[in-house]
């Protein structure tokens, strides 16, 4: 579960973003839409704890996270928040499976190899487990990103334009996976997007203006 109240943020004095409040239960999905330059990605980074808001509060599972600093924030983020980016980034020198293991090790100190293999199986990429990430297609890479975001069974799953670099078929696929998996893992799913292909599918929408 995640909720926000009165969040403001500014990169400089001239422009201040006032972020809309949101509330998302475990297993539900909220779509954050809006045109470019309205601060969608900024909002997502604030929710992920990568940026500090000027004011306001963010509650994740009844815990206020804007006051977490340094390695405590890193630890909380690793354990409770999964992020899927528009473009997939991986540790290039590690295999797909090792990337997942690394993600769980960084968050919890354990490798969770079994869970990683299960996830890869669910996402139908088991056969790519021992390949290097850059040997995979874009669609496959995005599925690995989802697996990595879910490996620590987070409370919140954030997706930043997860479909914009994918074709229709892959985009459908990814959205479906995100939705079913967030339900299965009881994760609050927040998708930031301007992709009209997705907008039709969700009723819970917040538009940034």
């Amino acid at each position: 579960m995640i909720s926000t109240k009165n969040i403001t943020f500014s990169y400089n004095k001239d422009q201040t973003f006032i972020m809309p409040d949101l509330f998302c239960q475990a297993g539900n999905t909220i779509l954050v839409t809006g045109n470019s330059g309205k601060g969608k990605t900024t909002y997502l980074h604030i929710l992920a704890g990568l940026l500090q808001p000027n004011s306001g509060e963010i509650m994740i599972d009844n815990k206020e996270i804007t006051h977490l600093k340094g390695s405590k924030a890193d630890k909380f983020r690793g354990k409770n928040i999964g992020v899927v980016f528009q473009k997939s980034h991986f540790i290039a020198s590690l295999s797909v499976l090792e990337n997942l293991e690394m993600a769980s090790w960084l968050a919890s100190g354990k490798k969770h190899t079994k869970r990683a293999k299960e996830l890869l199986h669910k996402l139908d990429i088991s056969e790519q487990a021992h390949k290097l990430p850059n040997q995979l297609s874009v669609g496959q890479q995005q599925r690995v990103s989802i697996a990595r975001a879910l490996i620590n069974e987070p409370k919140v799953l954030l997706a930043d334009e997860p479909t914009s670099s994918l074709d229709d078929k892959n985009a459908d696929n990814v959205i479906e996976l995100l939705e079913t998996l967030s339900k299965e893992y009881k994760t609050a799913l927040i998708i930031v997007t301007h992709d009209s292909r997705i907008k039709e599918k969700f009723t819970n929408q917040i538009t940034m203006v």
Binding site: A48, L50, G70, S71, D74, G78, H89, R148
Partner: peptide, 19 residues
């Protein structure tokens, strides 16, 4: 330079600066 995104991603996954 090439690995900046990689490092940022590790931080998102819970890596500390020190790591």
């Amino acid at each position: 330079k090439e690995r900046k995104a990689e490092f940022a991603l590790m931080r998102v996954n819970g890596a500390k600066r020190r790591q």
